[in-house]
Amino acid sequence: MATQAEHHSTRRDFLFVATGAVGAVGAAAVVWPLINQLNPDASTLALASIEFNLAGIEEGQSVTIMWRGLPVFVRHRTPAEIAEAQAVPLSELKDPATDQERTKPGHEQWLVMIANCTHLGCVPVGDSGDFDGWFCPCHGSHYDSAGRIRRGPAPTNLVLPPYEFLSDTLIQIG
């Protein structure tokens, strides 16, 4: 009698555990799509990576383009700006980075940066500030000609988006 009852109870336990486990798997499979729908949709992802033609930008000229909803500065730097940026000793920088690290080798004249001040996100003004770069009017951050923070409340240099040169005049951002 005892063994039979025991036998029954194990079979019963197994059935309940199996049903519960399958039910839990089902619940999880339902929950995931309900969360995943919050992620960027296909039309947003399609614009996650863009191509941009640099051909029309003159030396000393800067354009602002949009990438993933963010403004991006693309600046064609003059030799003077490049020389000035390269001459700055790292010890003078709040967020040390060489000019080479801020640009792509062989394309030092091109500076591509996300145009939001790293302080609180305003868009800095070009060709201004005390370091021949950018100046953020919101809270007074000064950036140099390599977009590095030199003075003011911003903690870090202007952020570089992931990008690469597909050819001398074509970049792909993202």
């Binding site: 019963r12 199996a18 399958v22 798997v25």
Partner: peptide
Amino acid sequence: LFLFLFAGLMWATKRR
């Protein structure tokens, strides 16, 4: 497939 499996298990559980 899942629903048929789960329905079978639920049926057995309910009967038990």
